[in-house]
Design a protein around this nucleic acid. Structure first.
Lengths: 201, 201
DNA sequence: GGGTTATTTTGACAGTGTCAAGATTATTGA
DNA sequence: TCAATAATCTTGACACTGTCAAAATAACCC
């Protein structure tokens, strides 16, 4: 129970994560400073260091939570099967996930964590789990429908790259506008579906 | 002619760009500070401000130069036609361009310029030109080979997203490793080719 | 040569992440 | 119950960042 005039905050760990998330959505990663964050939580500049080893650890915690949501969404969507409609739904949901929380998506996949500061083991684990679930589900749907010499893993990687690349271009506003979203999305699904099988749909 | 003990540097503009490029390749955007840069050029901290309005302007200049190279590469590759081999070559070259200068590629397409600091008009112009050339060449190759209800622009956007997404995943080391590069590249080409025409190849 | 302009410098300011040492409270063990 | 230990939080400090203002120096032009 966090009271305001106490020396100990009460639940600073959770408060920090919550405020950090809000700050991230409002100003992006570059606007998220530990000092601003501490002030919002009503605490001194170095207090957060007793709950997160450093800034990188805090960001990794944020990203980890976000990957859990993504994983949940993937499992929910791909349970619907491999019809063109299901795939279309999945792509739509993925695009929604990315474009409705662009700062969060950029944090999840951006270089801030994956290049600059080393990603936490926990983050790597949950990030890979998301992809593994995607690849597994896709592999199941593709059973026997794949052309010869085609690895399901490669299809998973290539198709993820397609949707992911689309998100990046959309979010940063390069080459693809918000208005084009639906049309390009459909085209991307056509790309994926066409490669899935040279047999009929 | 830049001499060392002169008050005026002589050719600071060019020197800054050159050293900035090197610093970028060595340490990435986050390691590129104006102060380090000034020191490397043998000049005081604020000297660069008389050649670039601010840090953003300098980075935009770097990216602009890089986009020119990319544009040149695109035109060179796509002149080879629309055969599967030509497309494969193009994708290979694009991946090479991105993975051999990862920091440069991240600067070109990353949020640092497109979200954080406003991109220069010059940068926007050359960036869009690259894509326009790609779309035009692709459109030419696809003349009459496209299924009904398929816009060439959408194919250009979707296919670019595929290759671009692949580069991002590769560079940051997410989901796709360097060793998978060739295999995923081929799979991506298969994706693109399959969508290009439902007629035979 | 003198005045204008371009270039460079020093000084300063606010902001950042994070370390060290001390202050305060919670928790635990005897 | 109460002292010892651990957890939590604070103040102070340091090095680093981008950038502004004002002054110094050099080049250029008529």
């Amino acid at each position: 129970m966090p009271r305001s005039d106490r020396y100990h905050h009460g639940d600073l760990h959770a408060t920090l994560l919550q405020e950090a998330n809000q700050l991230l959505n409002e100003q992006g990663v570059e606007g998220l400073s530990l000092r601003k964050l501490a002030e919002r939580a009503g605490v001194s500049r170095t207090a957060p260091y007793h709950h997160f080893r450093d800034k990188n650890a805090l960001l990794c915690a944020l990203a980890t939570r976000a990957f859990s949501q993504l994983d949940e969404m993937i499992n929910r969507q791909l349970r619907k099967g491999g019809s063109k409609e299901a795939i279309q739904d999945f792509v739509r949901e993925y695009l929604r996930f990315a474009t409705e929380n662009p700062e969060q998506y950029e944090l999840m996949f951006g270089r801030t964590l994956w290049k600059g500061g080393e990603p936490t083991d926990e983050l790597k684990s949950v990030a890979y789990r998301s992809f593994r679930h995607y690849a597994e589900q896709l592999g199941g749907m593709l059973q026997g429908r794949l052309p010869a010499n085609t690895d399901a893993l490669r299809v998973a990687q290539a198709s993820w790259a397609t949707v992911h690349g689309l998100c990046r271009l959309l979010i940063d506003g390069i080459y693809v506008n918000r208005e084009d979203m639906e049309a390009v999305s459909e085209q991307s699904v056509a790309l994926i579906m066409a490669a899935l099988s040279h047999s009929e749909d």
